[in-house]
Design a protein around this nucleic acid. Structure first.
Length: 431
DNA sequence: TCTGGGGTCCTAGGACCC
DNA sequence: TCTGGGGTCCTAGGACCC
């Protein structure tokens, strides 16, 4: 039996904790570059603002609705997330942190789980200021579905029985009530059913979560994939998706960005890729991994249809798996030099570290090249200096030192202060 | 003018081998 | 005129998630 604790409109809720004047207003948080809406308050949802809608379109469409838009402040959200997670952990012995605002908790055998969940929900609200919904079910997919029920019952009275608002336990329902809940749930709201497969299921005449649950698992596998088959089985109460108490090491680490404005020069792209590769290498060392190959990509903006389009990626192998920023940057820059095309408006570039291995595995080699001697000590110093004195204190030379001239950095014009992670940004109480 | 970033898993199909 | 069968490995791309 699993519970899913999920913050409501998480980024917006984090902002509201420090600016209560935002309560009751349509508020959205924007992606990097202040591009599109990635979190919406209930009022913004009620207006009809869609997830992922571009900000410039929202402004055009709702000029008089008093929409408040904020640039994403991921430092703040990460810190608020830690607080919420530590309180949520009180719900059971094992917790899987699934995303910045969601965690699964194993509540098998816990007596009065529903009541406990209600208390934990209240506590999270009181201690962190974040409202959340809690769903409980036999499998992770059912816990997700229960969570959807809890939030929807609160937001749209009449959609589900009102006793499911905020906390919904589908684990101890009689069959007919359980099936009534599934029948009231659109198949598009099932975890694992996205737009594409949703459309295909509908074309087959299926409409609700109950229809999907009653599908033959073998059919799901034949027509779609084992992933869909697992979803069907999970809806029937048979766990197929493992509970991951300890987060597994990442197999892939990416650092990518859209640029604040079109970029045409190779030198700018090299600066950008240097920074991406450095950030990725830092994350790699954090999980004590090594990487054997580095993928670099660049592309134009598919939205600028008047522009000539270009998209290319290249994978550069490293001589042996490494976690050295210098070598990883070198590979990324080499890749960028090879795929760069002059005369185009590049919109986005990035670096992926692929096939990451455990750093404990050491591949032995004869005639070690002088330039590839172990620089683990240097890397450790670099990481600790950057941690202590701030990001970018020590960088690779190709990152450029032109500071203000960097044409490719993102726009963030609507950012709130780092209320919880920076002394200078602390809120001041006045008598 | 302005459209995010970071992941995982699965499948199809090509290359290659015997 | 007629041109095998079976297997593995790798990669690209699709689909999904938040």
């Amino acid at each position: 039996m699993y519970a899913l604790v999920d913050g409501n409109n998480f980024y917006v809720s984090c902002e509201r904790v420090f600016r209560p004047s935002l309560n009751g207003r349509p508020v959205i948080v924007l992606s990097n570059n202040d591009g599109c809406a990635i979190s919406r308050s209930n009022e913004a949802k009620a207006l009809g603002i869609k997830m992922g809608a571009p900000w410039f379109q929202i402004q055009r469409e709702f000029p008089d609705a008093g929409v408040v838009a904020l640039s994403a402040n991921f430092g703040l959200y990460g810190d608020m997330s830690n607080r919420m997670m530590s309180v949520a952990a009180g719900l059971g012995p094992f917790q899987e942190i699934y995303s910045i605002d969601e965690s699964f908790i194993d509540v098998t055998g816990i007596p009065h789980a529903t009541e406990l969940a209600q208390r934990v929900r209240d506590r999270i609200l009181r201690w962190t200021g974040i409202p959340c919904g809690i769903g409980i079910g036999q499998t992770k997919t059912l816990a997700k579905l229960a969570n959807h029920v809890a939030k929807t019952a609160e937001r749209k009275p009449g959609s589900y029985p009102s006793r499911f608002a905020k906390v919904a336990n589908l684990g101890d329902l009689p069959v007919d009530e359980f099936e009534a809940v599934l029948a009231a749930t659109d198949l598009g709201d099932i975890w694992g059913i996205g737009r594409r497969i949703g459309e295909q299921l509908r074309a087959d005449g299926l409409k609700t979560a109950l229809d999907v649950a009653q599908m033959e698992p073998a059919t799901a596998r034949r027509r779609w994939s084992v992933t869909v088959e697992k979803t069907v089985r999970e809806l029937r109460g048979f766990p197929c998706i493992e509970f991951e108490d300890l987060p597994p090491a990442k197999k892939e680490i990416a650092s990518t960005r859209s640029f604040g404005r079109p970029v045409t020069e190779l030198s700018d792209l090299i600066e950008a890729v240097t920074e991406f590769a450095s950030r990725a290498a830092e994350k790699l060392r954090k999980q004590n991994g090594k990487v054997p190959q580095v993928l670099t990509f660049v592309h134009t903006s598919p939205f600028r249809t008047q522009d000539k389009q270009y998209s290319c990626s290249i994978t550069v192998p490293l001589r042996r798996p490494t976690a050295d920023t210098g070598l990883i940057v070198q590979a990324a820059v080499l890749g960028m030099r090879q795929i760069f095309k002059p005369g185009l408006n590049m919109a986005k570039a990035g670096v992926h570290l692929l096939d990451i291995q455990d750093g404990g595995i050491e591949q032995q080699e004869l005639d070690l090249d002088e330039s590839e001697i172990d620089r683990g000590g240097l890397m450790t110093s670099m990481d600790s200096l950057n941690r202590k004195y701030g990001k970018g204190t020590i960088t690779m030379a190709s990152a450029g030192n032109s500071g203000l001239q960097r044409t490719w950095v993102m726009r963030q014009e609507l950012r709130t202060p780092d209320y919880t992670t920076c002394w200078d940004s602390l809120a001041v109480a006045r008598a």
